[in-house]
Structure formats: structure tokens, C-alpha cells
Design a protein around this nucleic acid. Structure first.
Length: 281
DNA sequence: ATTTCATCCTGGAGGC
DNA sequence: TGCCTCCAGGATGAAA
């Protein structure tokens, strides 16, 4: 569910609320979501967390990182339907609240996830500035560069292989942070058909793709992300980017540029939305 | 070595 | 109303 702009908005919200706030207790309702070396001793880990303060909130790609003052960090991967928010106690959410951090000011941080594709790790000695080593040490997959760190040369190197471009954009080991919505939106903005083989993309379209990715992600961050159904920010609010979508979820509706009906194809099991006129192979 | 595919889950939508 | 099928912002390990 949440892609880079959605996680970024959760980070922004949490930073405004919980920096330097103490943790009084941690409750786990659904242990199956817990991962990493602490998988079998979270009870001990939870005792250690009590009394700590929240030192920083950051993200790496779609992963949310809450660092504490004892050198530990909670790492949250939200999956499709995961939410991480302050104080939400909708009946709706209560049923799927799997993990709760009790704060010293009597508020709560809740991890809510109906489908339970989301996961949580407790990491040791994580440096919030460069978290990759600690994450890989905990068995999480290696991540490619952040989209905002890409330049044209770097993107051209990534595209220099024989892969369907849509799949390549979703591969977190190549570029980390795009998901199905922003991959489709970026390809539309660059005029690239989602089934194009990456090494066949001409240089000028590579430049267009690079600027489209950054522009769309920035714009969505400003709009609070995209709420298609489940996404909520740290306050439980919806994002505002939905109505700005050009192709995602608009199958059969007219392209906003040329009026041609938007089409949907399945590529490696993921639905891909595109304009057959604006996006040629 | 790469790349695709099934799988993990629940809930909402739409057909009958 | 109910029952059925299909579909969903992701990640991953197994299989081809």
C-alpha cells in the first residue's frame, strides 16, 4: 500500500509529535508480525524499550525507522494495508491493532494492519543516517538508491539491462521507493509504455523518466500521498493525491491529455495502467 | 544469474 | 440478504 510519499508523510507527522517523547511500555497483540534476531525474545526487548526516548523518525525507501536513545530502532515495513499512527482507536482499527507503543504523555503509537503483510523489526546499533548495513544485518533485502538520489547517468545504468521497465521500477533492489501507483504514473508522464524493454528506452526518454519520477513523488508528498483505500497518515487522515492520478485506477476513463481510454494490462501479476496513445513502446 | 510466480491475509465490490 | 469470485499501494522464497 504505502509507497515512498505515503511513508514520508507518516514520518513528517510523527516527527511533529513524538520526538523526545518517552516510551513507557510496548504491547504485542500479534507476535507473528515481529521479525529479526529478536523474533524469539521480544518480551526481553520490550522491557528494554520501556523508559527509552524516541530520538529520531526517518525512512529508507518505504521502510519507517523509529530510533531510540539506547541505540535500538524499530523498523516498520507497512506492506499493503499497514498503518502506523498516533492514538487512533476506531473500532475498525482496534480489531487489527497488532503492536502498540505506550508513550509517556499517555498517547499511543499503533501499528494497524488488516492483511498482516506488514512486518516489524527491532534493530541494534542503527545509524539513522545510513541504515542499510543494520537492515541487511537483520536479514532485510538490499535496497537500491533513493529516487531523489538518482541522476541521469545512474538511471541509465539501471535501465541498461533487458527487463520490462514496469518490473524494473518495482524492483526495490534497483530503485527503492516506487510502488505500483507511482511506477504507472511516472511511465505515463514520460510517455513510456510499461512493457517496454528497459535497454530500448532512448536517452531523451530516460531523462524524462527521471524528472517525472522526482516531480511526481515530490508533488504527492506535498499532497499528503495517495489514499486509494487503506492508506492513512500518522494522524489517521487520508492523502490528497488520488484526484491527481493520471492513469492508476482509471481504466476505461479518458486520458487527461488525449481522451483515449486508459487501458490496464497485467505485467508479472501486477496491474499496469497506461494510455495506449501517449505511451508507445 | 535472472526473472517470474505463488503465497502470505482480510475486506470491499460486484454478479447472481 | 447471502454466497460466490475477483481484486487490492508489497515482499519474498522457490522454481523455471
Amino acid at each position: 500500500m504505502p509507497e515512498l510519499p505515503e511513508v514520508e508523510n507518516i514520518v513528517i507527522g510523527l516527527r511533529n509529535e513524538i520526538l523526545d517523547v518517552g516510551v513507557t511500555a510496548v504491547r504485542v497483540n500479534k507476535p507473528v508480525i515481529l521479525r529479526g534476531s529478536y523474533k524469539h525474545c521480544w518480551r526481553k526487548a520490550m522491557k528494554e524499550l520501556a523508559g527509552r526516548k524516541i530520538r529520531s523518525v526517518t525512512r529508507r525507501a518505504k521502510r519507517l525507522i523509529v530510533s531510540l536513545d539506547n541505540n535500538q530502532a524499530l523498523l516498520v515495513q507497512l506492506g499493503m494495508t499497514g498503518r502506523f499512527m498516533i492514538n487512533n482507536s476506531d473500532d475498525d482499527c482496534l480489531k487489527h491493532t497488532h503492536f502498540v507503543v505506550e508513550l509517556a504523555d499517555s498517547r499511543q503509537l499503533r501499528f494497524v494492519d488488516p492483511r498482516r503483510f506488514g512486518k516489524l523489526w527491532l534493530l541494534e546499533a542503527l545509524n539513522p543516517e545510513c541504515p542499510d548495513e543494520a537492515m541487511e544485518g537483520a536479514g532485510l533485502g538490499r535496497l537500491g538508491p533513493e529516487p531523489f538520489d538518482l541522476d541521469k547517468r545512474r538511471l541509465a545504468e539501471i535501465l541498461n539491462c533487458k527487463r520490462v521497465i514496469k518490473n524494473l521500477l518495482l524492483d526495490q533492489t534497483r530503485i527503492a521507493g516506487l510502488g505500483n501507483i507511482y511506477a504507472d504514473e511516472s511511465l505515463f508522464a514520460a510517455g513510456i509504455h510499461p512493457e517496454t524493454v528497459s535497454c530500448n528506452i532512448p536517452s531523451e526518454k530516460t531523462a524524462l523518466l527521471l524528472s517525472a519520477i522526482k516531480r511526481i513523488l515530490r508533488k504527492s508528498i506535498r499532497q499528503g500521498g495517495t489514499t486509494f483505500s487503506d492508506y492513512r497518515n500518522a494522524y489517521g487522515e487520508r492523502g490528497g493525491f488520488l484526484e491527481m492520478l493520471q492513469v492508476y485506477g482509471r481504466t476505461g476513463e479518458p486520458c487527461r491529455k488525449c481522451k483515449t481510454a486508459i487501458e490496464k494490462v497485467v505485467i508479472s501479476g501486477r496491474s499496469s495502467h497506461f494510455c495506449p496513445f501517449c505511451q508507445q513502446r
